[in-house]
């Protein structure tokens, strides 16, 4: 090629500052040479991943297995007797029994059938669940759609404001609800009386106590679910709406035939998560109603807590836990089976 390229200068980095670049190069070269000199140990990878398995085994796997184990026993007392020991000459490992237990077989499970408080707590939990989850998801969906609409302004502000309750400390916000719904001095009754409504015995009346719990849980979690649904809405390609519009779809038909089916996986996720979340409701009834009045708001987890740490029926509480987990799993599986065909 005889073409003359007179402008063949060395390119100068747009960052300028060659000194700084040279320093970074130095560091990079040093790092590369260290990597090359590093000894190669075959099974070093296992060492790196072992912390997870140790922690998982100790704090997750073991308690789960031990809970199942405990559910076949009746707890007597704390014990320091040996469970088993390993004697290999110089090393002697003694693993103590955690508790003194009496084997009862399926006795704990059998006891559940006739335990009226267990059935009461199951009923309360289901009652709260069936009302709270649909209301919350309906509300979250409506808010998400509203915030997704192109004409709404200050979206960022509303999004944050609605989602912020999820960051509230459970005990703290429950206490606020306790005060708000106080029969004599509460703000809610004050508001009602100012418009001429008789004060309501929020926490003493069976019906209203459950509604108070539902209100509290809904207040805290609606924004959280709204954020998830909003993300789902924003993932729906705009062109599908345009195609539907050209196909002659009305606003409602676009929602029915594009939004809902496209949102289904996200909606399913939210439903399953909310169901599990509400099913294991504990702190709100514990703080606001303490399960009352006359056990009208005691939830299954609260009952397990009482049995385990107030009555020290660890074996029975474990059996309750196993049943609880089984029920939650079955419900979730059913929801996923019904809701998720893809």
């Amino acid at each position: 090629m005889s073409t003359q390229h007179s402008d063949e200068e060395t390119p100068v980095s747009s960052d300028g500052d060659p000194l700084r670049l040279r320093l970074w190069d130095r560091i990079r070269f040093a790092r590369q040479s260290y990597t090359e000199r590093m000894p190669q140990i075959e099974s070093i990878a296992y060492v790196f991943i072992s912390p997870f398995f140790l922690l998982f085994g100790l704090f997750l796997a073991f308690p789960i297995v031990y809970t199942v184990y405990l559910s076949f026993f009746e707890y007597q007392s704390v014990s320091s007797d040996s469970l088993f020991w390993i004697d290999i000459g110089p090393i002697f490992i003694d693993v103590p029994q955690i508790a003194e237990l009496q084997f009862v077989g399926f006795g704990n499970y059998a006891h559940m059938a006739g335990d009226s408080l267990f059935w009461q707590s199951m009923f309360n939990t289901t009652y709260i669940l069936l009302i709270q989850v649909p209301i919350m998801i309906g509300l979250a969906l409506a808010l998400a759609i509203a915030l997704n609409a192109s004409f709404v302004r200050f979206k960022g502000f509303f999004r944050t404001a609605i989602a912020i309750p999820v960051s509230a400390n459970i005990v703290a916000y429950s206490t606020v609800f306790l005060l708000l719904f106080n029969e004599q001095f509460g703000f809610i009754n004050y508001l009602l009386s100012s418009v001429g409504v008789e004060p309501i015995a929020w926490l003493r009346d069976e019906f209203w106590a459950r509604k108070t719990i539902i209100a509290a849980v809904t207040w805290r979690w609606t924004g959280y679910n709204m954020i998830i649904l909003l993300a789902g809405l924003q993932n729906i390609p705009q062109q599908l709406y345009e195609a539907a519009e050209i196909d002659g779809a009305s606003r409602w038909e676009k929602f029915r035939y594009v939004t809902l089916p496209q949102l289904k996986p996200v909606l399913l996720f939210v439903v399953v998560l909310s169901t599990i979340g509400t099913f294991k409701l504990f702190a709100e009834p514990y703080v606001i109603t303490d399960g009352g009045p006359t056990n009208a708001t005691i939830t299954i987890v609260q009952y397990i807590y009482r049995e385990a740490f107030q009555n020290w029926n660890l074996g029975y509480a474990s059996a309750l836990t196993v049943v609880f987990v089984a029920i939650v799993s079955v419900i979730s599986i059913i929801q996923i089976k019904i809701g998720g065909d893809d």
Binding site: P237, Q239, L240, E242, A243, A244, I246, D247, G248, A249, S250, E253, Y257, V258, P261, Q262, K264, D342
Partner: peptide, 25 residues
């Protein structure tokens, strides 16, 4: 209208996709 990326309804079968406009309008 035919869109560049087709904009077919992912949750519908081909039959439903083609028939959707007739069903609505």
């Amino acid at each position: 209208m035919v869109f560049q990326n087709y904009a077919l309804y992912p949750h519908m079968t081909v039959r439903q996709n083609i028939g959707f406009g007739l069903k609505l309008s």
